[in-house]
């Protein structure tokens, strides 16, 4: 078994299990909080973009374009380093808050596009059917459009959540400890890049696989009722 230790020293990795566990927990926690933020932002921005009001529409479109045309890393820097320069808060954002806000704002833009497409995919005929029985705007949204949009939206939203989880590794640039940061700890403590990053890669793959299973399950459940 010695040759394995040569290539991948699992005994060293075993010593760092607490770090990796904390890293995974942090990655999941950061992703979860940014996901909630992104879903709220995404829904509002999608509705703004579908609205007839040109001001709302412009603001929403500008936000999405700005996010889509700049790298997440620079968004993290701008929010973490620059927002404190604005006299909004009486204190600095800490790294974790800055990272989560940046991730949420970033994912929110992409999710708004998914949600908008989902709402638009519900055909005009469905709305007219609901109108012809006298439903109000809110009733049409609640009972006809949103339930159908939901089925179209969940699978791509889960895909975007997988991207969010991977993207959360970038908050390590501003010193937030998470899964990738756990790898950095192993690298700096033991100078063993192999053990550090192959393990990190493996952990991300497991998370990815779980998300994939979950997405397949959701697709079957949601698609099942309609086809």
């Amino acid at each position: 078994m010695d040759w394995i230790v040569e290539v991948y020293n699992y005994r060293v990795v075993a010593q760092f299990i607490p770090e990796f566990t904390r890293g995974i927990a942090a990655t999941i926690w950061i992703s979860l909080l940014s996901l909630i933020m992104a879903l709220i932002i995404g829904t509002f921005v999608a509705i703004m973009r579908l609205s007839a009001n040109p001001v709302l529409w412009r603001i929403a479109a500008g936000y999405v374009q700005a996010i889509r045309s700049t790298p997440l890393l620079i968004q993290i820097y701008v929010i973490y380093f620059s927002i404190p320069a604005l006299p909004l808060l009486d204190r600095r954002l800490d790294e974790l808050e800055g990272g989560i806000i940046a991730l949420g704002l970033n994912a929110g833009a992409y999710m708004s596009e998914i949600i908008r497409a989902g709402i638009e995919s519900v055909s005009r005929g469905q709305v007219e059917g609901a109108q012809s029985v006298g439903m109000t705007y809110m009733q049409r949204m609640r009972y006809v459009v949103l339930p159908q949009a939901f089925a179209n939206v969940v699978p791509p939203l889960l895909g975007q959540t997988s991207v969010l989880i991977k993207d959360s590794s970038l908050v390590s640039f501003i010193g937030v400890f998470e899964l990738f940061g756990a790898g950095l700890v192993v690298l700096s403590d033991r100078l063993m890049p192999n053990e550090a990053f192959m393990t990190v890669a493996f952990c991300y793959l497991v998370i990815y696989w779980v998300m994939l299973m979950f997405s397949n399950f959701a697709q079957r459940r949601l698609g099942g009722a309609r086809r």
């Binding site: 990738f180 790898g183 890049p193 192959m198 991300y204 990815y208």
Partner: peptide
């Protein structure tokens, strides 16, 4: 399934 950052480090 893995972040680009991890590819780069590997």
């Amino acid at each position: 399934g893995t972040p680009f950052l991890v590819h780069l480090y590997i």
